[in-house]
């Protein structure tokens, strides 16, 4: 079995094709544990995992917590509401204080892009990125890729359409970094106000003028969450018009391949990014993504601990 040489998992940009394949295949194995009656193995017994969340999260934090517990690690959750961040303590000081308690892994979500690299220079435990600003969300990227692989048996050659606010999306960046390394073709669509400059240079990435162009013959349609509070008043007129041009519905999904899957990282604005019939329809893999999230995070925790699979 290939060896995972990284101490931290901060960005899929930093990982090779082989690293990503290894994480996905480990996750596939981890899934067996999640289907057992007793969903627990002793693999990370005695290891301490701190989930340090500087931004609100339900799905990701819970998923990491369950992943740790299924591997028998001791997991502790810290969210901003209960941390020292509100008392004006710096990130470095908080981390050093946590480090003094000898954790093995810190799983962190932070609003500032690159905050994990800053931390990695300060402390000596492993760091897993659970989302940093608009930079990356590697566990989401991996679970998305695993979900695609489940359906198609491969990632190489898949046409993946990602639709929405690419500029502010760490999910989009991690998917672009991971998918293009594994041979998928990524097609992006969104209002020009939400398309970051030079994004086509990140890999085999095509920026489409319209959503229909991106959907045409797609194997995967990934819709991104639109946040009225983030997109503000200057990036789009309102949710209604956004939905008209960049919403997924039973009509435009017909442009994609008949067996195409529909994905969304959540939380969903029903009726905005996609109609409810799409969220709940046969092509939707949204809950499968969540399910795979636990296995992927188990694989990440496992590999940064340098473990070997029995």
């Amino acid at each position: 079995m290939a060896e995972f040489k990284h101490k931290h998992i901060i960005a899929l940009r930093d990982l090779s094709k082989e690293d990503i394949e290894l994480l996905i295949s480990t996750a596939e194995n981890m899934r067996d544990i999640n289907c057992r009656d007793i969903k627990k193995v002793p693999t990370l017994r005695g290891k301490t995992v701190i989930n340090l969340f500087y931004e609100a999260s339900t799905r990701t934090r819970t998923s990491f917590e369950i992943a740790g517990k299924r591997l028998s690690a001791d997991t502790v959750n810290i969210t901003t509401a209960s941390s020292s961040a509100t008392k004006g303590e710096t990130l470095a000081d908080t981390a050093l204080n946590l480090l003094a308690m000898k954790p093995d892994i810190i799983v962190m979500r932070h609003a500032v892009s690159g905050a994990h690299y800053f931390l990695a220079n300060k402390i000596n435990c492993s760091i897993i990125n659970a989302g940093d600003g608009a930079h990356e969300h590697p566990s989401q990227g991996l679970l998305d890729m695993l979900t695609m692989k489940d359906r198609f048996g491969r990632l190489d050659g898949l046409k993946v359409a990602i639709v929405g606010d690419i500029t502010h999306s760490r999910v989009a960046r991690s998917n672009i970094q991971g998918l293009t390394k594994l041979g998928s073709k990524v097609y992006l669509a969104g209002p020009p106000t939400m398309m970051p400059p030079g994004v086509e240079k990140l890999g085999d990435v095509t920026v489409c003028g319209t959503m229909n162009e991106a959907l045409q013959d797609a194997d995967v349609v990934m819709m991104l969450r639109i946040q009225q509070e983030r997109q503000g008043k200057t990036l789009m007129p309102n949710a209604r018009e956004y939905s008209r041009y960049f919403g997924l519905n039973p009509t435009n999904i017909k442009l994609a391949k008949p067996n195409a899957i529909v994905m969304h990282p959540g939380p969903i604005n029903r009726g905005v990014e996609m109609s409810s019939s799409m969220v709940d329809g046969d092509q939707s893999c949204i809950l499968k993504q969540v399910e795979n999230g636990v296995a992927v995070r188990m694989a990440m925790l496992y590999h940064v601990c340098g473990g070997e699979l029995e």
Binding site: G114, D132, G133, H135, E136, R170, R173, P196, P197, G198
Partner: peptide, 11 residues
């Protein structure tokens, strides 16, 4: 620019 896109930093 491209660097801000890759780093996910606001440009």
């Amino acid at each position: 620019g491209f660097t801000s896109t890759e780093l996910g930093l606001k440009g």
